[in-house]
């Protein structure tokens, strides 16, 4: 009888501990979402623009924000690095975009793809969409592996190649990625500006329909698949991913402590091979693997 009581008590205690652990993990995850929210608000602090249908024209727009945040978003107080890069290489004064390249190198060297996990507005929106309770889709590994290269192709062709080599009679090229692919500009800028600005609304045409279709596709796929835009399309993620191996913000697996239970890899929604390549170009430093590890073998690198 006494033994039964003790067992029940122990069971209750274990359940309580597991509940507390879940709450603690939830709080840590929420802390990341709080940072994402703060970064989004900070980069889009011109709240007045949302109801006036205009954009911020202050000097802060000469500074690039780290994440994909359209500078035509009414709230944006900084410049989008991909938009600025294309504008520079497609303009009639084509030259090496030292300033933007340096900014991208700086963010990459310090944070790597932690920018995607913590500071990118479009990444945050995808995180929130994935929280909608629906059956989720796992992309077959072979298809996933091939699709991961797509963002590098988009970077090379649509962000650099086409704007650089195709131009009109005045020597000005199109921002191909922003114009034909990027759904962030449609969501953050297009929707708000056309809603609030009559003159812009009257200019809507086929391109806007195409971009709304892409936005719709991105939203639906983000509900079903974790961060599809970041995994397969985003050229900014492709750039920052190159720095993941040596950025200051890195993860490390303590091989002597690891028990190879595989919980970290199961938990990773970006499908990073945590045990063999934790600093892979796909890791957005969300910390899910760290929280899943039962022996605390995964941590941020000390130096």
């Amino acid at each position: 009888m006494q033994q039964e009581k003790n067992e029940n008590r122990q069971e209750r205690q274990e359940k309580k501990q597991s509940r507390m652990e879940k709450i603690r993990q939830g709080m840590i995850r929420n802390k990341r979402h709080l940072i994402q929210l703060a970064a989004a608000l900070l980069a889009n602090a011109n709240f007045k623009g949302f109801w006036s249908g205009t954009i911020w024209q202050g000097k802060s727009k000469s500074i690039c924000v780290p994440g994909l945040n359209c500078y035509s978003c009414p709230g944006a107080v900084g410049a989008c690095p991909i938009g600025s890069l294309q504008a520079q290489i497609s303009g009639n004064q084509k030259g090496i975009p030292y300033y933007i390249a340096g900014t991208l190198l700086l963010f990459g060297a310090v944070l790597g793809r932690a920018v995607c996990g913590f500071l990118c507005l479009f990444g945050f929106i995808q995180d929130l969409l994935y929280k909608i309770k629906t059956p989720k889709i796992t992309v077959p590994p072979k298809v996933d592996k091939v699709l991961r290269y797509l963002k590098y192709v988009i970077l090379a062709v649509f962000v650099i190649g086409l704007p650089l080599f195709i131009s009109d009679e005045f020597g000005i090229g199109d921002p191909w990625f922003c114009k034909y692919i990027c759904p962030a500009g449609t969501l953050e800028g297009g929707v708000f500006l056309t809603l609030m600005n009559q003159s812009l609304r009257s200019m809507i045409g086929v391109l806007f329909t195409w971009k709304l279709f892409l936005l719709f596709l991105t939203i639906i796929s983000s509900i079903l698949i974790y961060r599809p835009f970041c995994k397969y399309i985003c050229p900014l993620g492709a750039i920052y991913g190159l720095f993941n191996r040596f950025s200051f913000f890195r993860m490390e697996v303590d091989q002597s402590a690891c028990i190879h239970c595989g919980k970290c890899e199961k938990q990773c929604k970006m499908q990073v091979p945590v045990l063999t390549n934790i600093n892979s170009a796909e890791c957005i430093r969300c910390g899910d693997c760290k929280r899943a590890c039962p022996v605390g073998a995964i941590h941020l690198e000390k130096r």
Binding site: K61, I63, Y71, G91, G190, L193, I204, L212
Partner: peptide, 22 residues
């Protein structure tokens, strides 16, 4: 090379291509 000013010049005007107008 005054490139931040070039970024500013582009960013302070609504980019019609970016928002899908043309």
């Amino acid at each position: 090379q005054r490139q931040p000013e070039m970024v500013l010049q582009k960013a302070v005007h609504i980019c019609l291509e970016c928002i899908g107008i043309g």
